[in-house]
């Protein structure tokens, strides 16, 4: 993966990831490393959105076993992340983003959902999601606001962070 500073205060990370879970983890760690080296503090939820998108592509577009490659580009700006992903796996069913109905949590313990959280997280953190199928490839683009790096921190974590300084 390549990381570079571009004009307009953009820190851009781009490259390809093999469509298997271990490669997704390795890619996320590499992206983290680039961000650490860049030195700008970022709200941590960029990683959840990027992870869920990559997991979904591995699991659904490539059915966990077809093999394949995902091309990604992450443009980090002070206000947020513009992330784009391309893969040549299966199209989204119906050519549309899947629905993510809010799960009913007021149910007996045994009936609590153990999945279906992925799109809920992506939709929750992204401001804009654009999907289209073109030339046999899936193209997904998202805007994720990351304005305040401390916004999502718990009090305990803010204290730990403060103590490290």
């Amino acid at each position: 993966m390549i990381a570079e500073r571009l004009e307009g205060d953009v820190f851009s990370i781009h490259g390809t990831v093999a469509a298997v879970p271990d490669a997704v983890t390795a890619a996320l760690l590499e992206i983290r490393q680039h961000l650490v080296q860049d030195g700008t503090a970022r709200a941590p939820h960029w990683e959840i959105v990027v992870a869920e998108v990559l997991n979904n592509i591995v699991e659904h577009a490539f059915e966990n076993h077809l093999g394949g490659e995902i091309t990604l580009r992450l443009d980090f700006r002070p206000a947020g992340l513009c992330a784009s992903f391309r893969d040549n796996g299966h199209a989204m069913p119906g050519g549309m983003l899947p629905p993510s109905p809010t799960a009913d949590l007021d149910v007996p313990r045994a009936d609590l959902p153990e999945g279906g959280f992925g799109w809920q997280l992506i939709r929750g953190f992204a401001r804009r999601i654009d999907y289209h199928r073109r030339d046999g490839c899936n193209h997904l683009e998202l805007d994720i606001p990351l304005a305040d790096p401390a916004a999502g921190m718990t009090d305990a974590e803010r204290a730990r962070r403060q103590a490290r300084k």
């Binding site: 941590p44 939820h45 990683e47 959840i48 809010t102 799960a103 949590l105 609590l112 959280f117 809920q120 997280l121 929750g124 953190f125 999502g152 921190m153 718990t154 305990a156 974590e157």
Partner: peptide, 19 residues
Amino acid sequence: AGLTAAVDKVFRMTRMDSI
């Protein structure tokens, strides 16, 4: 116990913090 920011966000966004 001891949820860090990113973990806490995932629980809250999915409302699983309530269970």
